[in-house]
Nucleic acid binder design. Structure first.
Length: 864
RNA sequence: GGGGAUGUGGCGGAACUGGCAGACGCGAAGGUCUCAAAAACCUUUGGGAUAACCUCCCGUGUGGGUUCGAUUCCCACCAUCCCCACCA
């Protein structure tokens, strides 16, 4: 064993040995309990960042722990390799997206391997491999056959900067999720997956995930699916045979309606204004609203509308209501039409004020008064007793809602219904670098799937990516022109590719059987490994990937491949790694070395704004390169630091000195292990019958700390406090060592106690810093990898304190302490506390009203 | 507007089910070793009162409440962050 700790040297040694000995490769072992530990696959951006270090360190710690607890641990890794950035980079450099991606994978894999992560690399998957995306195509065909996919001409969200279509999720807020460019709309024939058929299941099954998934993810998904229960009500358009259906959650307020308002795109608009004098004006207005609505965010858009001149008839009271159009009515939510009730809804209230539409009060205040509508200052959304509503007056809102829906159903002009915010998932992309859609368009036979025996439809190479509009594959005749599998006539391939979120839907199923060329996976294998026991990834996937993959699992269940409903048991959304930024008004973000001591820009001398800590990124110039850090103190130190910086789910602040501290700690571990190595390794010592104080203390602390770290891994996974406990154990070993030195030569009892403590430390540090742990373990005479060793056991008996400190309070204020045996009775504690001098002084002769005793912790004497 | 979180020393954080606030680490100060520096080791380190020890007072964003006892539970407010958003 070397006297000094040289991290890079021994890290290389162990990384090589793990690879050679296939230490982390696993197979289905039905005798052992499995544990599937999964980190989100890496996007092939080209470079590892600290976020990866943080994500993978958490997963790796858990994988190590479970392995040492005897589980058969599946811990695989792969690449999210299709997608726009590779294509953009290729266009820029005139290279090939495949080359860009393969290079990125090679480099990032080298980076990740230098972190020494315990992956079973034999299961590595890259989504751009034809052996992988073949099965995307296969799924596509199965879904199409079952009517789970359809095609429609749809306005797609289109990012004009990247020339790519986006799903609703990717275009949320009206901007591109990747580059923040405002999204425009384009009409294109698109493939859609009927995810809305699963809306109820996706929502209801969230209940099963509650407590095991972070609250914010569950609630974000609930909001995203956005189920509202309400009613559809059909209004006749006066003097015509047409009707307008509105969706409302508050049918009980219908007597307060003062208008029907349509989205500018509403299909009936043209007919309503036909032959009316204001026709031109209204249609022009609608056209303008359509354009503006698309380009502005909600809060920037002032409410605007126009009276179409048409009239609708309220089916409850036969009142005639003017038909308006307005920019706040959305064509793709509900029915694209609503009834305006100013007394009961903020938006209708504002709109009616602006355009002087009449108000009618339909609810009483909480104390039973009726405020005249014209005196309302704000709408009465929460008032619950209905008035001025015909035979429903006097009912509670809920009751009115139910009875009025029943009435509408009975009279045939309405029905109870459910509306969702969730839209069907548009999965076509007019791009090159993705899975080709395996469909053929034949003039005679229509849409025909590629025969399964011909899969995969391989993405052609050497394609010109710089095409204006449409997909690059449109311009590859040898790809496009095929014969129809059905009639043998001339036909065209579909030239769109799939959204990359299709790729990430099921990659972790593929890990269970990565080389299967008969089927996407062997059901026996996935039912051994899945569901994933612990999934770890970034919060940014709360509604994208994590809804799609839940949907895909249910789809696979419905086509008979899978027997469970939810793919992921526990989810952990890890925090970001942040660092402070420096911003110069003239030169934007600066590197720390560009800032002078007086906080001025070294280029222009302007005062630098020291920004709050932000997520590391290249553009903010606050990124830290993991490889540089590994070169300084080694992979173990960087892993230890990111885990120690805070609880896994919380954001962390990068600190160079903190990183240094992690390295210093490992030096300290090495030093004490080195000092005891020659005494302990190979020594045959029996458990001593008699021990002195310092020996008993060492054993007690060892068992206490093993217990606390074990419990933490099992329950809370607060890895930062596990590391504090390891540091405490280390400090304890140093104290013990000093006690031994004081006595001269170590006795056999000393060796026994030291070995127990140091070997527990080495084993428990393995999940955090596996390289140094393996090296120390080997030098302590163990020939097999720590991955095959067992997690240390603890004994409650040995962890028991001999004497505990009990706090004594008088009226809730700490006044004294008692040192007692842990099994002292309540009565004795009470007696000792009352007898205590300081307690008597604090009580100052007042009467003792009562005494509260919390065993092992505290006594509170209450005096009056 | 809706939803979710967070707020504790100079800093990162700890305190698990209401029971001694500040574990562990960083930083800082002083010391030992050294020609010197680094490393390592030792001591101190929430604020205040006191020359100092003992001791006492204050202290977990703010204001209330519940309780023998609140960082923890409840109500209101303030601040910050994240997600969604004219969703009828």
């Amino acid at each position: 064993m070397k006297e000094k700790y040289f991290p890079q040297e021994l890290e290389e040694k162990w990384q090589r040995r793990w690879a050679e000995e296939k230490t982390f490769e696993v197979t289905e072992d039905r005798e052992r309990e499995k544990f599937y530990c999964l980190e989100m696959l890496a996007y092939t951006s080209g470079r590892a960042h600290i976020g990866h270090v943080s994500n993978f360190s958490i997963g790796d710690a858990l994988a190590w722990y479970k392995r040492m607890r005897g589980f058969n641990v599946l811990h695989p890794f792969g690449w999210d390799a299709f997608g726009q950035p590779a294509e953009t980079a290729a266009i820029k450099d005139g290279t090939d997206p495949e080359k860009f991606t393969r290079d990125a994978i090679a480099y990032m894999k080298w980076q990740f391997q230098r972190m020494g992560l315990s992956y079973d690399w034999s299961r590595e998957v890259a989504t751009c491999d034809p052996e992988y995306y073949k099965w995307n195509q296969w799924f596509f065909i199965q879904m199409w056959r079952r009517g789970m996919l359809y095609r429609k001409l749809a306005p797609v969200n289109w990012c004009p900067k990247e020339n790519i279509s986006l799903s609703n999720e990717q275009a949320s807020g009206g901007v591109c999720w990747r580059c923040d460019t405002p999204v425009i709309q384009k009409q294109l024939m698109q493939w859609f997956a009927r995810i809305t058929d699963y809306a109820d299941q996706l929502l209801d099954d969230l209940d099963k995930l509650e407590g095991k998934w972070p609250d914010r993810v569950v609630s974000q998904q609930r909001n995203w699916i956005g189920r509202s229960l309400g009613a559809e009500v059909r209004f006749e358009v006066a003097d015509t045979i047409d009707t307008i259906t509105v969706f409302t959650t508050r049918i009980d307020t219908i007597f307060g309606a003062n208008a029907i308002i349509l989205a500018p795109e509403h299909p009936l608009l043209a007919k309503i204004v036909e032959g009316k004098p204001q026709r031109e004006e209204v249609l022009a207005f609608a056209e303008r609203l359509r354009k503006e609505q698309r380009n502005a965010r909600a809060e920037e858009l002032e409410k605007e509308g126009i009276n179409t001149g048409g009239w609708a008839v309220n089916p409850f009271n036969r009142e005639r209501l003017p038909i308006w159009i307005a920019n706040f009515v959305l064509i793709d939510y509900g029915t694209g039409a609503l009834m305006s009730v100013p007394a009961g809804d903020q938006r209708d209230f504002e709109f009616s004020r602006k355009y002087n539409l009449p108000f009618r009060q339909i609810k009483l205040t909480e104390d039973g008064r009726e405020i005249p509508a014209e005196e309302l200052e704000v709408p009465n959304e929460d008032w619950i007793v209905t008035v001025n509503s015909g035979r429903w007056s006097g009912l509670a809102s809920k009751e009115a809602n139910r009875l009025m829906t029943e009435y509408a159903e009975a009279e045939g002009f309405g029905r109870a219904t459910t509306t969702y915010k969730l839209r069907d998932w548009g999965i076509s992309r007019q791009r090159y670098w993705g899975t080709p859609i395996p469909m053929i368009h034949c003039d005679t036979c229509g849409i025909v799937p590629v025969p399964e025996s011909e899969l995969p439809v391989v993405l052609p190479k050497g394609v010109n990516l710089k095409v204006e509009g449409g997909s690059p594959l449109d311009h590859v005749p040898e790809f496009v022109n095929v014969t129809c599998p059905n009639c043998g006539g001339a036909a065209r391939r579909d030239t769109d590719t799939m959204d990359t979120f299709v790729d990430s839907n099921w990659y972790y199923f593929r890990y269970c059987d990565p080389h299967n060329d008969e089927q996407p996976f062997d059901p026996d294998k996935i039912h051994y490994w899945l569901p994933v026991n612990q999934y770890i990834g970034g919060i940014e996937h709360a509604v994208l990937h994590l809804i799609y993959t839940r949907y895909w699992t249910k789809m696979m269940r419905d086509i008979g491949l899978v027997r469970f409903d939810e793919p992921v048991e526990r989810l952990l959304s890890q925090g970001m790694v942040c660092k402070e930024t420096f911003y110069c008004p003239n030169h934007e973000w600066l590197f720390p070395e560009q800032v002078t001591d007086g906080n001025r820009c070294s280029i222009c001398e302007s005062a630098v704004i020291i920004g709050r800590s932000e997520k590391m990124s290249k553009s903010r110039k606050n990124a830290v390169d993991p490889i540089e850090m590994i070169n300084i103190h080694g992979a173990d130190s960087i892993r230890l630091f990111v885990l120690f910086a805070g609880p896994p789910e919380q954001d962390k602040e990068w600190s160079d000195t903190g990183f240094n501290g992690a390295a210093k700690y490992l030096q300290r571990v090495w030093r004490i292990a080195y000092k005891w190595q020659s005494r302990v390794a190979g020594a045959e010592v029996a458990e001593p019958a008699e021990m002195s104080d310092y020996q008993r203390r060492m054993r007690r602390r060892t068992h206490q700390i093993v217990r606390s770290i074990t419990e933490n891994f099992e329950e809370r996974l607060h890895l930062n406090t596990c590391i504090s406990s390891l540091m405490e154990l280390t400090n304890e070993i140093y104290l013990f060592d000093q006690a031994v030195d004081k006595n001269g030569e170590p006795t056999s009892a000393d060796v026994f106690v030291a070995r127990e403590a140091i070997e527990a430390l080495i084993r428990m540090i393995a999940p955090f810093t596996p390289h140094i742990a393996e090296e120390l373990w080997e030098s302590y005479g163990h020939s097999e990898s720590l991955a095959r060793s067992r997690w240390p056991e603890y004994s409650d008996e040995l962890a028991r304190d001999e004497e505990i400190e009990v706090a004594v309070q008088v009226n809730g204020k700490l006044r004294s302490r008692l040192f007692v045996s842990p099994d002292v009775s309540r009565e004795e504690l009470e007696r000792a506390a009352l007898a205590d001098e300081k307690v008597q002084a604090a009580a100052a002769g007042r009467d003792v009203a009562k005494v509260i005793v919390v065993p092992q912790k505290l006594v509170n004497v209450v005096v009056k």
